[in-house]
């Protein structure tokens, strides 16, 4: 089954989260360090980082689809309420609007 824009965008986001927040902590685990030789650890780490980077880049242009879905869902929450503010900041944090992304890149 072909992947939708939403799936690709979401995978890109998940891949970025894993790369920035999870890879180091998993490879730092005692159990992982004991289970593999240092050479194997390094090659596995590189293999995983490459795969994550690929997933991240291939779904970059589809991240807007995820933002639209999240905005639709958060639209159910009454406006001007505390929950609405929390939801908006959550969506902004997870999927920054395209304009601010461009600004960051500049």
């Amino acid at each position: 089954m072909a992947e939708s824009s939403f799936d690709k965008g979401l995978e890109s986001l998940v891949a970025e989260l894993i790369r920035t927040h999870l890879v180091d902590s998993v490879f730092a685990k005692d159990a992982v360090r004991k289970g593999l030789t240092p050479e194997k650890l390094e090659s596995l780490r590189q293999e995983i980082l490459t795969r994550l980077k690929e997933a991240e880049e291939s779904g970059l242009e589809h991240r807007d689809a995820v933002r639209k879905v999240m905005e639709t869902i958060s639209g159910f929450i009454p406006k001007d309420s505390l929950m609405s503010t929390v939801a908006k900041s959550f969506v902004d944090k997870i999927v920054p609007p395209a304009a601010s992304q461009d600004k960051e890149e500049e």
Binding site: E11, V26, F27, L36, L44, I48
Partner: peptide, 10 residues
Amino acid sequence: EVYVKRVLDA
């Protein structure tokens, strides 16, 4: 190896 790959599988 399988454990690491599964945990980090986007």
